[in-house]
Amino acid sequence: MSDSEVHMGVSEARANLTEVIAKVRLLGERVVLTRRDKAQAVLVSNEFYEQALGDKTFAEITREAVDRLDPAAREQFDTAFGQATADFTQRRLKSS
């Protein structure tokens, strides 16, 4: 699966829809559809879409579980989550 992202005007995408869909489906490219250089929508593979739905569900369940923590545990979670987020961001910056 590719991590590449292509920006394309809506008119260009419409004119080349078969090819655009093939790139999205077969190569895993994300195609950001633009109008006047502003993003309007994103075409993604079904695999990417299904994963995103699963991630959203997991995030909602996690948020609900965190809301049920007592204040001390919530503070510990917030601290650990903040550190993990910072570490993840640093790793991504180093790899790009």
Rank of each mutant, 00 (worst) to 15 (best):
G54Y: 09
E12N: 09
G82L: 02
F88S: 08
R25N: 02
H7A: 03
L53F: 02
E75D: 14
M8V: 05
T34K: 08
S2E: 04
G82S: 07
M8E: 03
A84E: 15
D3N: 00
F81Y: 14
S2D: 05
S95L: 08
K23N: 08
E60S: 06
D37F: 11
A41N: 11
M8K: 03
L26A: 12
E12Q: 10
V10Y: 07
F48P: 00
Q90T: 09
L27Q: 10
M1K: 07
L93A: 05
V31F: 07
A41C: 12
N16T: 02
R92L: 10
A15D: 13
S45V: 10
R30L: 08
T18Y: 08
E75N: 15
Q83A: 13
A39L: 07
R30T: 14
S4G: 08
V20W: 03
L17E: 11
Q51Y: 01
E5C: 06
T62W: 07
A13E: 04
Q83I: 10
V20N: 04
E60H: 04
F77G: 01
E60P: 00
V42F: 05
E75F: 12
L33S: 02
Q90H: 08
N46Q: 04
R30F: 05
K38V: 14
G54Q: 13
F48A: 10
R36A: 09
L17M: 15
Q40D: 03
S45H: 04
R30G: 04
V20E: 01
D87C: 04
S11I: 12
V31T: 04
V32C: 04
D70C: 09
L17R: 13
I21P: 00
E5M: 09
S2P: 02
R14G: 02
L69A: 04
V32T: 06
L26D: 14
G54T: 12
E19T: 11
Q40P: 00
E5K: 09
A80Q: 15
R25I: 01
A13L: 04
I61H: 11
L93K: 11
A59M: 15
T62C: 13
E75H: 14
V6W: 01
L33N: 01
V20T: 11
D78G: 00
N16C: 04
E75M: 14
I21M: 06
A52G: 02
P71Y: 10
V32G: 01
Y49V: 00
E19V: 09
R36F: 06
A52Q: 08
L26Y: 12
D87E: 11
M1S: 06
V10H: 03
A80T: 14
T18M: 09
T85V: 09
A65T: 14
K56D: 09
G82K: 03
K56T: 11
E75T: 15
F77W: 14
L17S: 07
S45A: 10
S95T: 08
V6I: 14
G28T: 07
F77Q: 04
A15V: 06
R30E: 10
S2K: 08
E50F: 01
S11T: 13
L69V: 03
T62M: 15
V31H: 01
A65I: 13
L69P: 00
V42Q: 06
S2V: 03
M8T: 07
D3C: 00
R91Y: 10
F77K: 03
V42S: 08
Q83L: 12
E47R: 05
A86R: 11
I61F: 03
D67L: 13
Q40M: 05
V24C: 05
V44N: 00
G54H: 11
V24T: 05
